[in-house]
Design a protein around this nucleic acid. Structure first.
Length: 468
RNA sequence: GCGACUAUAGUUCAAUGGUAGAACGACGGUUUGUGGUACCGCUAAUGAGGGUUCAAUUCCCUCUAGUCGCCCCA
C-alpha cells in the first residue's frame, strides 16, 4: 500500500516541476503597459477629438520615428535638462550610431520641418503628431516610461496671436473630451535680448543667498539658474519668493508680445494664472511658456496634463535658418486618467445588431458565407463560431443585446434557409438565403426608427422633469 | 535617482508556521434544436530565486513589478 502511495506522490512532484517550468511567464518591462480593450473607449474618444480639432484648426498630421539621433535632443531639448541628462533611453546601434528613444516630440517635428524643406511652403507650417515618448523615470500612476503625447507645432510665425490660438486649441481639446476645471498657468521668460541681463540679475541674487539653496539648486546656479525658480524644496521656495521675476525684466519686444497674448486670451475668455515661477524644464523655450493642470484638492500634487511655449531659437539650433515657432504637447495617458476620474463619456463604438447562430458542420460553413454577405452590405454581425449548442449561443446573443438572431441548423443548411428570430418579441420566421440581407436590413431599419422615437420621447420627458 | 508600502484564481477580496476559501467571471449542464431569471457542476492562485525550519504562502534576504511621497514632468 505505502509503496503505491509513495509512487503517486513522486509522480505528483514530477508533474509539479514540469508545470513550473512551463509556467515561466512574462510581464511588461518596467514602466511599460498594455492599454486594454476596456480602456480603449476613452483613448478612442481622445484620438477622435484630437483629429477633429486638428482639422478644424488646419493642422496637418505628421508621424515621426520613435528612434532619433541622440545629439538632436541634446542640442534641441538641452543637455542640462533632466530629460536629456537623466531620463533618455539611449544606446548605440550595431553600426555605431548614437541614438535614443524620443523623450518628446518638438525637436523631431522641427527636424522633419527642416529635412523636408517645409520652409519653402506657406508659413507657418502647422503640424500635429501623436505617439509614444520614452523617459527613464520612476513609474507611478500617470507616469510611465512609455507614454503617449500629442502635440501641435506652428513653425515660422512670431505673432503672439498664434500662441493664443494654440492655447485656445488645447482648451478646445480638453473641453471636447469632457474635462472640466483645467487651469492654465502662463509666464514669459524673455528672449536672447533680455534673458541674459535677467540671468545676471538672478545669479547675483542667488549668489548672495547661496547657503539657503538646496544641493540641486547650487548646481543649477551655474548651469541653468532659471530653473531654480520652480524648485519645490521648501528652503528654495523661501529664497525664490523675493527673487527678481522674469516678467519684470522683459525687453520691450517681449513685453508687448506677452501683453498681446494676455489680451488675446481675455478676448476669447480663456482664464489664466500668471505664474512667475513657471519656466519649464526644456531649454529651447523663449517668451511664452504655459502649462495645464487639472484643478484638484489642496493636498493632491498637481501633475501637468500638458504644456508648451514659444521656441524662437530651436530651428536655428537644429541647423536651420532663424525661424520662430510655438507649440505644446499633452500627455494622453494623463488626460485619459483624468477623463476617467471626472466620469466623462467615452466613445461608444457601434455594436452589431445581428447574431449568427450555427449548428453542425455544414451550417457552420454556410454561415461563414452569410456573415460575409451581411458584412459586405454594411450590416454588423456578431457570432461565436467556436460554440456548439444553441442555448449558449442564444445566451451570448442576448448578452450582446442584438435585435435579430439568424439560426442556421442542419435542416436549414440543406434547404438553404435560415430562421430569423426577433429577439424582442421572440417570434420566428423562415426565410431563404437570398432574402437574408434584404430582410435583415428592413427589420433593422424599423427597429432603429422605433429606437430613435423612444429616445426622443425620453428626451422630452427629461426636459419636462427638468422644467418641473 | 532617493524613501515608504504592497504582491494570493481572469478580477475583487479572505485565511493560515502544517490540506489555501469566497464572490464575480469563464466554461458546461438542468431530456433530443431556442435567450434573459433560477439551480447545479467545473475551472483556476500564494510574483521569481535563495535562507531559517521537521514543515514557509506566512518569518528573513535578494530580485522583479505595482502604488504612494520626493525629484522631474506629460
Amino acid at each position: 500500500m505505502s509503496k503505491v502511495i509513495e509512487k503517486i506522490k513522486e509522480e505528483e512532484d514530477v508533474e509539479k516541476e514540469v508545470k513550473k517550468k512551463r509556467k515561466k511567464s512574462f510581464q511588461t518591462v518596467r514602466g511599460m503597459r498594455d492599454i486594454l480593450p476596456k480602456d480603449q473607449p476613452y483613448w478612442q474618444k481622445l484620438r477622435k477629438v484630437i483629429e477633429k480639432t486638428a482639422s478644424d484648426y488646419n493642422y496637418d498630421r505628421i508621424d515621426m520615428p520613435v528612434l532619433e539621433s541622440r545629439e538632436m535632443f541634446e542640442r534641441g531639448t538641452g543637455k542640462t535638462t533632466d530629460i536629456v541628462e537623466k531620463e533618455m533611453f539611449k544606446f548605440k546601434t550595431k553600426g555605431g550610431d548614437d541614438v535614443c528613444l524620443r523623450p518628446e516630440g518638438t525637436p523631431s517635428a522641427v527636424r522633419a520641418y527642416l529635412q523636408h524643406g517645409m520652409q519653402s511652403k506657406q508659413k507657418p507650417a502647422k503640424l500635429f503628431y501623436s505617439g509614444q515618448m520614452y523617459r527613464y523615470d520612476r513609474p507611478q500612476e500617470g507616469r510611465y516610461r512609455e507614454f503617449f503625447q500629442f502635440g501641435f507645432e506652428a513653425i515660422g510665425e512670431q505673432d503672439a496671436i498664434l500662441d493664443a490660438q494654440l492655447i485656445q486649441l488645447a482648451v478646445r481639446v480638453f473641453q471636447s473630451v469632457g474635462l472640466k476645471n483645467i487651469s492654465l498657468q502662463l509666464n514669459s521668460i524673455g528672449c536672447k535680448e533680455c534673458r541674459p541681463k535677467y540671468n545676471k540679475l538672478l545669479v547675483s541674487y542667488f549668489n548672495n543667498r547661496k547657503k539657503a539653496l538646496c544641493m540641486d539648486c547650487k548646481k543649477r546656479l551655474k548651469k541653468n539658474p532659471l530653473r531654480i525658480l520652480d524648485c519645490k524644496e521648501e528652503k528654495c521656495i523661501q529664497v525664490v519668493f523675493q527673487a527678481p521675476q522674469t516678467v519684470d525684466h522683459l525687453c520691450d519686444n517681449c513685453r508687448s508680445h506677452f501683453t498681446m497674448l494676455l489680451e488675446s486670451l481675455d478676448e476669447i475668455d480663456i482664464p489664466y494664472v500668471i505664474n512667475p515661477q513657471l519656466v519649464r524644464g526644456l531649454d529651447y523655450y523663449s517668451k511664452t511658456v504655459f502649462e495645464f493642470f487639472p484643478e484638484c484638492g489642496e493636498d493632491e500634487t498637481q501633475s501637468a496634463l500638458g504644456g508648451g511655449g514659444r521656441y524662437d531659437y530651436l530651428v536655428e539650433n537644429l541647423g536651420g535658418p532663424e525661424t520662430p515657432g510655438v507649440g505644446f504637447a499633452c500627455g494622453m495617458d494623463r488626460i485619459v486618467l483624468e477623463m476617467m476620474k471626472q466620469n466623462t463619456k467615452p466613445y461608444i463604438a457601434p455594436t452589431p445588431k445581428v447574431y449568427m447562430v450555427q449548428l453542425g458542420d455544414l451550417a457552420k460553413k454556410k454561415s461563414l458565407r452569410i456573415f460575409d454577405d451581411l458584412e459586405r452590405s454594411g450590416v454588423m454581425v456578431a457570432e461565436s463560431f467556436g460554440k456548439k449548442n444553441l442555448k449558449s449561443q442564444l445566451r451570448l446573443a442576448n448578452q450582446k443585446k442584438v435585435s435579430i438572431v439568424l439560426i442556421l441548423g442542419q435542416r436549414e443548411a440543406l434547404d438553404e434557409t435560415v430562421i430569423l428570430k426577433d429577439m424582442e418579441s421572440g417570434s420566428q420566421e423562415v426565410i431563404t438565403f437570398k432574402k437574408i440581407v434584404e430582410e435583415v436590413k428592413k427589420r433593422l431599419k424599423k427597429s432603429a426608427e422605433i429606437a430613435s422615437k423612444k429616445a426622443k420621447k425620453e428626451q422630452e420627458a427629461r426636459k419636462k422633469l427638468k422644467k418641473a
